[in-house]
Simulated assay, not measured.
Amino acid sequence: MKFKLVLSFLLLTTCFVAFGQEQQSGNSKNQNASVSEKGLIKISIMYPFAEGKTFNMEYYETKHMPMVAGFLGSNLVKYTIEKGLSNGIPDQPLQYMAIGTFYVKSLSDYKAAVAPHRDAIRADFVNYTNTIPLIFVSEVVK
């Protein structure tokens, strides 16, 4: 019974959040942001949480991500860094410690820009984490 109550609360909260986002998307600033991102390629680098795994956010923010962004040149539209706070399900462990995301115009240009620097990028991992990231490549549709 307690589980059903928690699940109902989560679903209700999700509905309110989604409704609030729909209401906010009516303003021109949000519409322009989604229009300008449509069609972009999004590369998400996700760092899974696990017991004993560490992540140095300061290094990632000030050294690693700017280094990789520099390799991408004019193909890079923007990049974001997210710090994991909690799992969406109460009393469950955090899924990701951090997620770094690059928004680029072309996947082939991204691959060409990163390829000669792949070893340097991977060698830098030890400076901020002891986990192996998962990479998800997608296209922004809205």
Rank of each mutant, 00 (worst) to 15 (best):
K38I: 04
G73N: 11
V77K: 02
A123Q: 14
Q95H: 04
Q95W: 02
T13R: 05
A123D: 14
K29S: 13
Y103T: 04
S108T: 13
F125L: 10
M67Q: 13
S86G: 09
I89T: 10
T101M: 03
I43Q: 00
L94C: 00
V141R: 15
M46S: 10
E58P: 05
I41L: 08
L72V: 02
M57E: 14
Q92F: 10
F125S: 02
V6N: 01
L10K: 06
S34E: 11
F102C: 00
Y128L: 13
S28W: 07
K29W: 09
I135M: 05
P90E: 03
I132A: 10
D91V: 05
L10P: 05
S8N: 09
I121C: 08
S138H: 14
N27C: 10
I132D: 10
H117N: 07
V17H: 10
T14N: 14
Q24I: 05
I132Y: 06
Y110Q: 03
S8Y: 08
D109H: 06
E139T: 15
A98K: 00
K83Y: 03
A33N: 09
Y128G: 09
L85I: 13
F49T: 00
S86H: 05
E82M: 04
T129G: 13
G52D: 03
P66C: 08
M1G: 13
Q95E: 14
K83L: 07
P116R: 09
F125P: 01
V35R: 10
